[in-house]
Amino acid sequence: MTAVAVRDFDERVVSPSTEHLLRWASAADDYSPIHFDRDVAAARGFEQPLVHGPWKAAVLRRLLAGWLGPNAVIRELSVRYLRPDAVGRPLRFGGRLVSAASLADGSTEMRCTLWVRDDQDRASVEGECVATVEPDSAGGLPLERLRAAVRLGQDAGTFTYRVEANDVEAFAKAIGATPGTDAPATYFGALDPVERRDLDLDAFLHRLPYEMTGGGNAFNEVTYERPIRVGDVITVTTRYTEVYEKTGSRGTLLFRVRVNEMCDETGALVATSRCGHVLSYRLEQGGSRP
């Protein structure tokens, strides 16, 4: 974790017009008359129609995306509306980077405070945001970063799973097999730390600034020394062996291949599996994901 200096983003002044509010009312399907009917506003004690709170939040979010840059994905954003604002009065939108921390996968987690102030410097909106900023990937998939994140060629993690009768029975039922003492041949998939998300080293691939057009397992292979059985205590060691990209009909395909060694409680090898997973991206479309 590395700390960086607190800094303010460049404030922007926006004066919400009636047209802004009408466009928002239509887009958000919010026709509450307080936002466009002067008489309704007057009856509620306001001189002018009021600006929609979510419009202020939306402007703030758009500015925030610009402040953080195209490699940022806004993961959490919360705002509180503190006071009503009259249409036509200028509002100042601002934010401050409060902390930035490097994450193990090479990205940076940024925390910001945000505000909207009126022309008398009164707080109209306050908020906070958490964003993940990906390092520049120079117009392509960050293969070197991925290789480092998954510790290519080295042991990436070791997990121990008990093979319980109920688990094997549930698995057999789910694939339409007859439950027995031997687990079905594809049960090795249920002992895969990556499928189980016990090992999740490449989650940042879902936050790259590219449209993801598909993905899933490409292949699964297994070699058994003996079947996995009820009562086994299996220790699984995962090693990523390949990370590469290919161009396909659905865009650029990113493959990761991993090998799992499964040993029983005596240390004897029970099975070795090889699993390939693919994600496809459209690289030409940049910009941050929604």
Partner: peptide, 26 residues
């Protein structure tokens, strides 16, 4: 993986009760 499971069971059920997979890949 579920489709792989369907296929593995198809082969195993046909082969008989004392059959088990040395290798399987999908």
């Amino acid at each position: 993986f579920l489709k792989a499971g369907f296929l593995a069971e198809l082969g195993k059920d046909w082969a008989g009760s004392d059959a088990w997979y040395r290798r399987f890949g999908a």
